[in-house]
Design a protein around this nucleic acid. Sequence first.
RNA 1: GCGGGUGUGGCGGAAUUGGCAGACGCGCUAGAUUUAGGAUCUAGUUCCUACGGAGUGCAGGUUCAAGUCCUGUCACCCGCACCA
Length: 799
Amino acid sequence: MEYHHKQIEAKWQKHWFEGDRFQAVDFSEKPKYYALVEFPYPSGVGMHVGHIRAYSSLEIIARKRRMEGYNVLFPIGFDAFGLPTENYAIQTNTHPRVVTDTNITTFLNQLKMAGYGFNYDRQVDTTDPAYYKWTQWIFIQLFKKGLAFRDKTYVNYCPSCKVVLSNEDSQGGKCDRCDTPVVQKEKDVWFLKITDYAERLLSGLEELETLPRIKSEQEHWIGKSTGAHVDFPVKDTDEVLKVYTTRPDTLFGATFMVIAPEHPILERQHDKINNMNAVHAYQEQARMKTEFERVELAKDKTGVKLDGLSAINPLTNEDIPIFVADYVMIGYGTGAIMAVPAHDERDYEFAKKFGCDIVEVIQGGDITKEAYTDVDEGILVNSGLINGLSVADAKAKIIAYLEEQGIGEAATNYKMKDWAFNRQRYWGEPIPIVHCDHCGMVAIPEEELPLILPDVDKFEPGEDGESPLANIPAFVHTTCPKCGGPAKRETDTMPQWAGSSWYFLRYTDPHNDNELAAMDKLKYWMPVDWYNGGMEHVTRHVIYSRFWHQFLYDIGVVPTEEPYRKRTAQGLILGEDGDKMSKSKGNVVDPLEIIDEYGADTLRLYILFIGDYEQSTPWNPNGVKGARRFLDKLARLEDKVEDKPNANYETLLHKTIQAVGDDIEHVKFNTAIAKLMTLVNELGKEDHVARDDYEIVLKLVYPFAPHICEELWQRLGHDEDMVYAPWPDYEESKMQESTVEIVVMINGKLRDKLMIPVDMAKDDVIAKAKAQDKIHALIDGQAIKKEIYVPQKLVNIVL
RNA sequence: GCGGGUGUGGCGGAAUUGGCAGACGCGCUAGAUUUAGGAUCUAGUUCCUACGGAGUGCAGGUUCAAGUCCUGUCACCCGCACCA
C-alpha cells in the first residue's frame, strides 16, 4: 500500500469520532478500566508536544484494554478557570468565557487530529455552571464541617498578580505564575483544613502504585515529624512560651529561646520589653524581606535580644534569654523554639554570634568546633534524670517526665500548612458564602447553586487585592439566608486547583444535575485504575484531590477512600538544544506541523520511542523520520501477505507478542516499539508473510498508530473496526527454539560461539565446546581449574 | 544541608536473577537505483598503535564472570529547604 497519511487519518478520524466508536458503557458486564490523563488547560497556543507525550501513554493502554475485553473509560475535559485566560481577556478586552470557548473548540479539534480515542461525550469544563455548581457544593460541605474557615494569618502574596498564593503556588519563594518574589502579608483569608487529613494523606500513599520519587515528594511535602511540645514559663508573667522540638532529649542544653518576628507575645508583653524600638525595627526589616531573601541570607544570622523579658528552662530552672530572629518561622511549629546550640547547627551559629552559653548534653562530638547532631550515637550528660541514656531512650523518658509534670507532651508536627483557598480574581468559581452582620458567615442554600459568576466590564483586580466582583453592587448586596437581613456576598473566587480536585468523579456521570455523580456509577467506575500526568503536579494537584476525595468519602459521597490506584508521570520533551522548550528560546516544536508533514501516527510513535517515558529527553527532528520509515515498511509488508503459513519467524513473532505486551504495561513504550521494528524488519526479509501473522503485527502496532493499522486491517477484508479485535496471545510452546547459540569463554573472555540443541546435557556441551578448533588450540596443554556451564547461555573454562 | 534520580558510541537510548555491552532509531560510510538531488534498497558503523587489546563518570573490592553487587569518590539533574 502507498501510505498517504492525510487521506487515511482524515478517513478514520471521521469514522471513529462521528461514529462514536469508543463508548464507555455504564454498568457493562465487561470488567471496567478507568484510564485518566490530567485534563488540559485550554490555552490560546493550543496543543504542545508535551500533551502528546502525556496522553499517548494512556491512549495506548486504553486501546489495548478495549482489545483485551475491558469496558474502558478514557475521558477528557478542560481545566479552564485561571489566570492566563483572564490575563489574555484583560489584554484583548474579550470576555474570558469567549476566550475559553474558542480555545476549547480548537483544543478538541487538535486532540482528534492526533487520533485520541477519548470519550468525548463525557467532556467536562470546570467553568461550566453545571460543573462548578458541584465545586461550590463541595465547598459548602467543607464549610459545614468546619474544614473551610477564615483566619487572619501571614500569607504568601504576589505583589505583581495581586493575589494570595498557597504554599504550593509559591515554591522557591517565587510566584508560580510570574516568578515575582513572594512577600508575606497579613490577610484575612479562607483556608481549607487539609492538615486534618495529613496523617491519612500520608498513610494512603502506601496503597498507591507509583515511582519512589512521586511518593517521597508527597511524603516530604506533608513533612511529618515527631517530638514534643514543651512549655517554657516566661519570667515574671503568667505566660508560657510553647515550643515544638524533635529533640526533647536535649532539653537540658536549651540555653536560650528564639521567637519569630511575628510572634504575638511581643505585642502582649510589650510593656515589659525595654527595647521595643529595636524589636519593631527588626520586625519591619524582616517583613520587608521576601521569604526567598530570608533563605538566601541564611548564612548570616540576625536577631534582637529582648531586654526585660526572659524565660525559664523548666528542667534546669535557669533564667534564659529570649531573642527575636527571622530564622524562626511563624508558620511552622509554634513560632518559637528552644535553642540548643551544642546540638543544632543553626542554634550553634546564632549562639556564637550573640555570645550565648553552649552546654554539651550529648557526648560524642567536639562542641568547641561545631554542633554535634548525631542521634544514633552519643550518651546524655549534664542532663539530670536522663544522664547516661542513648538519644532514643532519653527522648522516651523525658517525654514521659514532661507529661507527668504537666509541662509538655508528645507531639506530631507537619510541614504542610492549611490550604489558602481564596483568590482576588475574576475567572474562578465564586465562593458561595454571604457575610451577615447578625449571623456571621452563612453558606447559601444548596438549591440556589450554582452561584453564577456575574458579568463584569473590568476583569482587573482592584488595588490592594480587591476582587473584581467587589465592584458589582448587584452581586455583592443580598439577603442573609438565615435571618433574611441585609448581607454581603463573599467576592473572592476559588483557586484553579478547586475544579481539578474532583473532575475525575464527574466523568462517571457528567450530566447529573442532582448530585456530583450518582453513587452507583461511582461504584462501577471508581477508583481510577491508572492516572498519568505531570511531575509538577505531584505535590499540589495530587495531594489536593486526594484530600477532597477523602473528605467526600467521609461524608458518604464517594465509595472509595483513595481516588487513584496507580500514578505515573511523563518526563519533559526538551528542545533540540536540550533546553526546556520555550517561545523565547525559539526551540518549540509544533505538533500540528509534524502531523501535517508525517501524520499523527508517526508523531505518536516517535514521541513514545524518543526515550524512557519518565525521563526528560531532547527532541530530534530526524528521529521523526525513523518513525515514519517504520510505518512505511509496515505498509509495504502488505505486498508479501499470502494465505499460506510461514514458520520461519514463529519464535520471534511469539516472543514479540509477549515482550510488547509486557513493555506497554511497564511504561516502556520505547522498547516495545524497538521490538516491533525488529519484527517488521525481519518479516521484510521473508519472501512471504502469512496473513494471520500480519494481522497479529497490525494488532500490536494498532494502539500506537491506529489510523494506518485500521486502514490495512480494512484492506485485509475486515468490516469491523480494530477497536475490539482481540489482543493477540502468545503461545509458550512457539517461543522455544530447538537449537540455541551459546558462548564459549576462557577465563571469562569470549573466544567462540556454537549452536547446540536446547536439551543437550551439561557434560556434552562442555565436551563439544572443548572440541572446537579455536578453543582446543587455546586450552591445549593447560591445566583446567574449573568448568562452568550456564544452561542455554555459556560455557566458561578457567585455566 | 535533606530527599529522589542520572552518568553507557558522534546523538536519543537498550541490556530479568551478575552471564555475548551498545538492541532499536538517528547520523555517518560504501554500493545499487536515479540526469541530478530527494526517497528507497543492500552492506558496514564503540574505540585503538587492529590475527590482538581496551571499554559503561573515577578509584578500589567481591566473583569463574560486574553497566548490574559492595566500599569510597566526582559530576550533573529534579524536588524541598534556617522545618526546630
